[in-house]
Simulated scan of single mutants.
Amino acid sequence: MPTQSRRERARAERRDLILRTARELAESEGWEAVTTRRLAEAVDYSQPVLYGHFKNMNAIADAVALEGVQELTAAMRSAREAGGLRALAQAYLDYAAEHPAVYEAIFVRPTELAFGTPESPSPLKDAFEEIVAGVQPFAGDDPETLTEVFWSALHGQATLDHSARLRPTHRKTRADLLVSRLTGS
């Protein structure tokens, strides 16, 4: 048994190294720079070793996305508990700005992850439920639809901010205005 658990630990460590390296490459050079050849060289394993962990590059990006959405959810939860919906909105936008490649993996890149279905991975459901928790007090009888509208507005701001289409000095003001309109305060 000890040998098996050592093998399992080594496999988990390799997987973590692959994901960490893919994320670092994507954050520094963009997802187009993350290829199996480049990743294999960076982690000092052969491409077949990568394929032993992940089916393809999209599977690697999806795994980075799932890790990222867990981080985003934790940031939103902490912010919401401390400062309500306004703080949640700011945490969402801050995460998108601080981790653009991870945000892209979660919400922009083509993915095989199912969003908004009963089969969605639990980290995706948890993220949505965290936004619902912030919106619910202001939602009336349809909190999920209002959550989708709110989330869409935040995503639009994050995407437009990333592509430098909006005034960077007004990011907080835009988020505050969105929350004010939604909450009536």
Rank of each mutant, 00 (worst) to 15 (best):
G83Y: 10
V64W: 00
A91H: 08
Y103K: 01
A40K: 01
V64M: 03
E13L: 09
A75C: 09
A153Y: 02
P121Y: 06
T159C: 06
T145W: 10
T169K: 08
V149W: 03
A105C: 08
F115V: 07
A65V: 07
L19D: 04
G140D: 12
G184H: 15
D94T: 10
V179Y: 03
P168V: 05
G52L: 13
E24D: 15
M1S: 14
H99K: 15
G156D: 06
V69L: 13
D94N: 13
R174F: 07
L39T: 04
G134H: 02
L66Q: 04
A82W: 09
Q90R: 03
T183Q: 15
W151M: 10
A42C: 14
I131W: 01
P118W: 12
A139C: 11
Q136H: 08
A79T: 05
E81T: 06
E104S: 14
H162T: 10
P110A: 11
K172C: 05
T35E: 08
E32T: 10
L72C: 11
A139I: 10
Q4D: 13
S152A: 07
Y103F: 15
A91V: 06
E144P: 01
R6W: 04
A139L: 12
A105P: 05
K125W: 09
F150C: 00
E32A: 13
V108R: 10
T169P: 01
A114K: 14
A59T: 13
D16V: 04
S180R: 15
V135M: 07
R167G: 00
L17T: 01
A101N: 02
D44N: 10
R15Q: 12
A96T: 03
A127L: 15
V102F: 01
E104D: 15
E81I: 04
R20L: 11
E67N: 14
V64Y: 00
S180P: 14
E144S: 07
L182F: 07
T169H: 06
E98S: 10
R174D: 01
A82D: 14
A82T: 09
E112Q: 12
Q4A: 13
S163M: 13
V49D: 08
R6M: 12
R14L: 13
A133K: 08
T183F: 15
A87W: 09
Y45T: 00
S46A: 05
